[in-house]
């Protein structure tokens, strides 16, 4: 028994290190929303798009944007440091086929610590309600969420990692990020 306690004590630093590693990962992933609950909407939607690009994939492929094509360098710079791009988009034939509860399941997460809504965001698309949320810790941006809510369409874009609206605009139409039509340069942060 004595040996068990002695061994456990010697292994304590290793276990602490493992716990610390888990905590760091958890914090880095703090800007990632839980969106799996929306999957049930696929049965009602006329079209569903679900894109998941994780950190390993982004960082492994980022270095291959070598500048052969216009915009490659910009894309590589934007991808650098990103931990994930997650998009879920649902289109419906009729209005009202998704409920407030589904929106609330996302919004409730955005009321958590670190999230703030960027107000005065305008979409070039008529009638579309686009909301942008930033997850920050001090001056550090951990991630961003764009919600596009329309009676017949519901889209959530969740980018985890250092990102801002200017960088976001460079990803629009690529990597599964839809054309959001966000007007830049008219933003202020709501506290």
């Amino acid at each position: 028994m004595k040996t068990l306690f002695q061994t456990s004590w010697k292994l304590a630093p290793v276990l602490l290190l493992m716990l610390f590693g888990t905590a760091v990962t958890t914090r880095a992933q703090g800007a990632r929303l839980q969106l799996d609950q929306l999957d049930a909407l696929a049965n009602k939607a006329s079209e569903t798009v679900d894109v998941r690009l994780d950190e390993h994939l982004l960082q492994t492929t980022a270095k291959f944007f070598s500048g052969k094509e216009p915009g490659d360098v910009d894309v590589r710079e934007v991808l650098k440091g990103l931990k994930g791009i997650y998009v879920k988009s649902f289109s419906f034939e009729k209005a009202g086929e998704y409920s407030q509860a589904e929106i609330e399941s996302v919004m409730s997460q955005l009321r958590g610590a670190g999230w703030s809504k960027i107000v005065a965001i305008m979409s070039r698309k008529e009638g579309e309600n686009v909301e942008v949320y930033l997850n920050t810790a001090g001056d550090l941006v951990n991630g961003l969420v764009v919600l596009s809510i329309d009676p017949k369409e519901f889209t959530v874009v969740n980018i985890v990692g250092p990102i801002d609206l200017e960088k976001l605009s460079k990803l629009e139409g690529q990597f599964g990020v839809p054309e959001l039509g966000i007007e830049k340069g008219k933003t202020k942060k709501k506290e």
Binding site: N43, S46, E47, T48, V49, D50, V51, R52, L53
Partner: peptide
């Protein structure tokens, strides 16, 4: 296996 892209059109 990481899901990368999934598109569904049930109709």
């Amino acid at each position: 296996w990481s899901p990368l892209v999934q598109t569904l059109a049930p109709r």
